[in-house]
Nucleic acid binder design. Structure first.
Lengths: 327, 327
DNA sequence: CTGAAAGCGCTTACAG
DNA sequence: CTGAAAGCGCTTACAG
């Protein structure tokens, strides 16, 4: 392994000068710069980041804490984070928290020992002490926490409104809203948006809490559909819920979208694979991850952050589980 | 931050002794051990892994190189790797290669600079020079490479056989086999298994190359199904292909499984969400990832590796796209 | 069994 | 503009 010392010797300068050149700070004369540059190239020198980290107490590692990469919403997010991190020379460590504060804390502790540069966090625990005392750049992704910390979320409220309205526009008169977990802010925003829409339309509706879980959604919806034959439109807070609803409809022999229209939320690629393909309020998942990464890196590099709240627009993607608009 | 020096002072010994105690190598007297232990606890000391890495030229970082975390097969694999890595005190870095040798090489280079402890790699490029000269523990996951490097794969050949046989047992007489990419060893093994089964049964069949991509599978299968109305059973080399085939069947108004049976391969959770739910040859994906991680860590820690070839059994999961066995 | 010391490969005041 | 030197927090021969 060739070290900075080798470069210095070859260039006929001190290691300090090489270091300054490499980091672009401090003054380096033209002459010295040229000599160093040549030596670096000739020796094929690459800076040892571990040594640098020890010295600066910083690294180019980014921690990505998310509930579970196995949940189909997260891989695309992770992909985006990883892509832009790579672009800027950062490396991402994947942390599955299972929404467990202890696991999160554990990750934070072990990564701090590695002088981790910052965290992108998808968690409801962001007000927990291990975040409060973090003293490290953090950005909240997919979940709003507080105004102190930069956040990237979809415009969930608008999405909630749009989904409900789309159902009404297409003739549904009796809606069922599958509400996500109560302690999950983004899900609540979707609910609020849904309610907004209900206030402007005179249609019947009911809501039910429903986990973001396929089989549970299926059985919850199946039960409700049996009790209430009037329901002709379901708006789910997630695509996985919507998939469960679709399955329930199939189980009961309901024709989708004729008897029952369904709209999901998320826009994960699985939605296209269903039959009929799922109409959904699509989040720009990749964009969310990409922006989160950029905002984090800005923080890490001490650049000013203009927007603490980055709300990403959502869009209605009409596929097969809804009819053409009635308008 | 409290350092080893603080601990040494408090315990009344040298830093060398503390280090020996911490690492469990070299001799440490009972007395000294007790004092150090007390000091560590009192000071809440935690070893700085960056400093250790610089000194030992080793880290507890593991690189997980996979094509694309966005492909639904990989998240579960990644999850398993991450889970067992955590157990053993390792941290995993996620690397999406897009099957691009340049990207792989790039990751390997940047991680080597971090004294990465080893790699788990899902790649077809393992014979490329950047792996050959690696001099680092590696395990091949999901793809066989050569006998030098420990490998974890499903018993793909057996799976190919089982899927074909399951179709025949359930009355299909005209099979279509969706063959995966040619340069992908595991896909070839599935094909070989399929052929094995065909030799023992007198049914008609045809095969077609098909990428592991939903929309392309859909259109390829739709075309074939139109040309050949006799096909009554499709065996796909992946669940995503099978989802495309199912969609194609729906498009053509074919009843599944009555007119056409479909079996996939992988066992990803998406399969359950389809209608009908997908019958599939399920890989034990989590187990594959977990074993890969354990084998890698064994290597890293210099333990003997008993099996260079870990072939994980697959199983037939019967759901809705096949009929009850005819037998 | 233990400690002093050198070394891992950088960065960064500081003096010049 | 530049270099000598100390320091980041560990590990590890080596001498005792």
């Amino acid at each position: 392994m060739t070290t900075i010392r080798d470069v210095a010797k070859k260039a006929g300068v001190s290691v300090a000068t090489v270091s300054r050149f490499l980091n672009g700070n401090g003054y380096v004369s033209q002459e010295a710069a040229i000599a160093v540059k040549a030596a670096v190239e000739e020796l094929n020198y690459e800076l040892n980041t571990v040594a640098r980290s020890l010295s600066t107490k910083k690294s180019n590692l980014i921690g990505l804490i998310l509930p579970d990469i196995t949940n189909p919403f997260f891989p695309e997010l992770a992909r985006a984070v990883e892509d832009v991190a790579l672009t800027y020379g950062y490396t991402v460590v994947l942390c599955n928290s299972d929404e467990d504060p202890k696991k999160e804390k554990n990750y934070i502790e072990t990564l701090k020992k590695k002088y981790i540069a910052g965290f992108i966090v998808t968690s409801n625990q962001l007000d927990a002490p291990h975040y409060a005392n973090l003293k490290l750049p953090v950005v909240a992704l997919d979940r709003v926490i507080n105004e102190q910390i930069p956040t990237v979320v979809s415009n969930n409220r608008q999405g909630g409104f749009m989904g409900a309205q789309a159902l009404v526009d297409r003739g549904s008169k009796n809606l069922l809203f599958l509400r996500g977990p109560e302690d999950f802010g983004s899900a609540n925003d979707r609910y609020i948006g849904f309610k907004d829409a209900m206030e402007r339309n005179s249609v019947a509706y009911e809501t039910v809490f429903c986990p973001f879980h396929f089989a549970e959604s299926e059985s919850i919806v199946e039960k409700i559909l049996q009790d209430n034959k009037d329901i002709d439109g379901i708006f789910a807070s997630s695509d996985v819920q919507a998939a469960g609803a679709l399955k329930a409809a199939h189980n009961l022999g309901l024709a989708v979208p004729k008897d029952l229209q369904i709209i999901g939320f998320d826009g994960i690629s699985m939605g296209e694979m269903m039959t009929p393909a799922l109409t959904t309020i699509a989040q720009d998942i990749y964009k969310m991850g990409a922006i989160a990464a950029r905002v984090l890196i800005k923080q890490i590099e001490g650049q000013p952050i203009d927007n603490f709240m980055n709300e990403i627009p959502v869009s209605l993607v009409v596929r097969g589980t809804t009819k053409g608009a009635v308008t």
